[in-house]
């Protein structure tokens, strides 16, 4: 008897559900509202001066639990370090966001774009030219090389934020 009542109650609850507001939308005709902190397609951003932000420190690569980031560091003639190549194999990426968390320069960021489906896995291998965007992404202000001690083109020793001019080692003053 109780079994019969239970079943009826369940059916009743199902019936009530059909009058609730719908969570499902008619994607792709209708677009979902994606929160900005969504962890989707990864981009490499630029600093406010337009320079490549990534300094090829390999921290994102080592943080990646599926090891899907590979890069090679190189330097320009003024000592600025950047990646010679930067590859993300999105067919392995689990969009955990650890790379973004590890990145000391705010270069690598996950974006709200999730529409990355491909018929061929090889198309999911993104090189630097596919990853690099023109703006600073979510962090407009930060420019790593302005706080680092390394001298690069356009920023000599002592010219970074909160730095004194280079020491004169021949100075005998106490």
């Amino acid at each position: 008897m109780s079994y019969f009542i239970n079943t009826l109650a369940t059916l009743g609850r199902y019936l009530l559900h059909s009058f609730r507001p719908r969570a499902t939308i008619q994607y792709p005709e209708e677009r979902p509202a994606i929160p900005p902190r969504w962890r989707g397609r990864i981009v490499l951003t630029r600093d406010p001066d337009g320079g490549e932000r990534c300094v090829a420190c390999y921290l994102c690569a080592v943080a990646c639990p599926v090891d899907c980031i590979a890069l090679q560091a190189t330097e320009d003639e003024h000592g600025r370090r950047y990646p010679a190549f930067f590859r993300i194999n999105f067919s392995r990426c689990i969009f955990c966001g650890y790379c973004e968390e590890a990145c000391p320069t705010d270069a690598i960021q996950l974006t709200a774009d999730f529409e990355m489906s491909e018929y061929r896995r090889t198309n999911l291998v993104y090189e630097k030219e596919h990853l690099l965007i023109d703006g600073p992404g979510k962090h407009p202000g930060y420019n790593y090389y302005r706080v680092a001690g390394l001298a690069i083109g356009g920023k000599d020793k002592g010219e970074a934020e909160n730095e004194r001019p280079p020491v004169d080692v021949r100075d005998l003053m106490p």
Partner: peptide
């Protein structure tokens, strides 16, 4: 143990 890039190093040639 933290060797990185295992699934991306060769991905440009062999997925």
């Amino acid at each position: 143990p933290r060797y990185s890039g295992r699934t991306a190093m060769r991905a440009d040639r062999q997925i």
